[in-house]
């Protein structure tokens, strides 16, 4: 079984606050899922990656150019921020 400390360490990496009850639950749930993954130990090994040429996939790079969008879109996006000052999203000080 995965330890409480391990769950807390992963949760911190994932920037996720968990309650005491959640930590216990995740210990149990993660352990059963990770145990299930053991099935892959018996899986065959990949010998060679086959190159599959896909006629529908083109080069997905595009020109590095400015695409103009309506100002209303920017307003809509900024408008969603929980804390803002004029047209800027406000973040708590980090220093």
């Amino acid at each position: 079984m995965i330890s409480k400390e391990e769950v807390l360490k992963i949760a911190k990496l994932a920037r996720l606050e968990l309650t005491e009850i959640e930590v216990e639950k995740m210990q149990k749930d993660l352990s059963s899922v990770l145990d299930y993954f053991d099935i892959l130990k018996n899986a065959p090994k990949l010998k060679k990656q086959k190159e599959v040429k896909d006629k529908h996939q083109n080069n997905s790079l595009r020109m590095d150019e400015v695409i103009t969008m309506p100002a209303s879109l920017a307003n809509n996006l900024i408008g969603l921020a929980p804390d803002k000052k004029e047209d800027y999203i406000k973040v708590k000080s980090i220093l």
Partner: peptide
């Protein structure tokens, strides 16, 4: 920590943890 802790339900939390 708190926004994610409050905002996400059990299944997203479970998957975020498994993935991490």
């Amino acid at each position: 920590l708190k926004s994610r802790g409050v905002g996400f339900g059990v299944e997203p939390k479970r998957r975020i943890l498994i993935g991490t």
